[in-house]
Design a protein around this nucleic acid. Structure first.
Length: 277
DNA sequence: CCTGCTACCTGATGGC
DNA sequence: TGCCATCAGGTAGCAG
């Protein structure tokens, strides 16, 4: 569940299922999901703990326990499922990587690609990545000034910088592309070369794109009871991502795809130019 | 410190 | 049909 809007929607939807509940039993069905911690160590840390709160740090989901923290990173394909009866989560035909039982039911974690992780740490900041996160794109601290500050520090292409979680936390490939399209900025532009006007436009675009994305992710909200649930309807708001060869919604020029940092970048070669505004 | 690159996994898709 | 290449919403860890 890739970027911050998706994780935020999962956090909000998950809270009523598990907040305040005690994790009575833990089942690790696939060792890689908790790696490099061992299943035994994971189980000993988590079993019997009470979930005090659920929050999001960048793209990390954090469950604060009465003892330590459960930290989930979904990477590209991790997901959560809910079972009203724990026995259903443990049925042989259900492929889950980790199952957390509570009095009310069972929470299942699954990642078919096994890039994601669900791990226990004494504190959230002990999870690699979390302590180094930059300012969260959803936080009030994300302002035109803070964006200007991180832009000044980097000579990399602005698209790459936007995806750097140590600079700004929460944006991934989709919403970095969309933000730059909205702000009419060339993704290859070096960060420190953005003008104050471009910075203001980019800040506004990021805030707007993330707000709309969260709305999409919450309507409808994730249905953890549906084993095949996934975010739907996001495509409707996309103007650049995945639209190679399709006309730009502003000017009709075909959207182009290039490679930056081994990832695809989509942009309009006509309206996303340094001198186009 | 900054930057770029690769490894980590699995499945879907398209060309031949 | 089978096989191969390419692509996928991400990050950790390493080298320069």
């Amino acid at each position: 569940m890739p970027e911050a809007p998706e994780v935020e929607a999962v956090v909000r939807t998950l809270r009523p299922y598990i907040q305040g509940e005690k994790i009575s039993r833990v089942h690790v069905r696939h060792v890689i999901a908790v790696g490099p911690q061992t299943p035994g160590g994971f189980r000993r840390s988590v079993e019997g703990a009470r979930i005090l709160g659920v929050s999001r740090h960048g793209k990390y989901l954090v469950m604060r326990l009465n003892q330590g923290c459960l930290v989930i990173h979904f990477k590209l394909s991790g997901t959560l499922l809910w079972f009203d009866r724990a026995a259903d989560a443990l049925a042989p035909r259900i492929h889950l990587d980790v199952v957390l039982e509570t009095r009310r039911g069972a929470l299942g974690y699954f990642d078919r690609r096994h890039l994601g992780r669900i791990r226990w740490f004494p504190r959230a900041d002990d999870a690699p990545g979390i302590s180094r996160l930059g300012i969260d794109a959803y936080s009030p601290g994300f302002t035109p000034d803070s964006l200007a500050s991180v832009c000044r520090q980097s000579r990399r292409a602005i698209k790459i910088m936007l995806m750097d979680q140590t600079k700004i936390a929460g944006l991934g490939n989709i919403y970095a592309n969309e933000s730059l399209w909205n702000a009419r900025i060339d993704p290859r532009r070096r960060s420190y070369r953005l003008t104050p006007l471009q910075i203001r436009r980019l800040h506004k675009a990021v805030v707007s794109v993330l707000r709309r994305a969260l709305e999409c992710c919450l309507h409808p909200a994730p249905d953890f009871r549906d084993p095949h649930w996934w975010f739907a309807g996001l495509e409707g708001m996309l103007r650049a991502y995945g639209r190679e060869g399709m006309p730009c919604a502003r000017c009709g020029t075909n959207i182009r795809r290039i490679e930056q940092g081994q990832r695809s970048t989509f942009f309009c070669p006509r309206c996303q130019r340094p001198d186009s505004h």
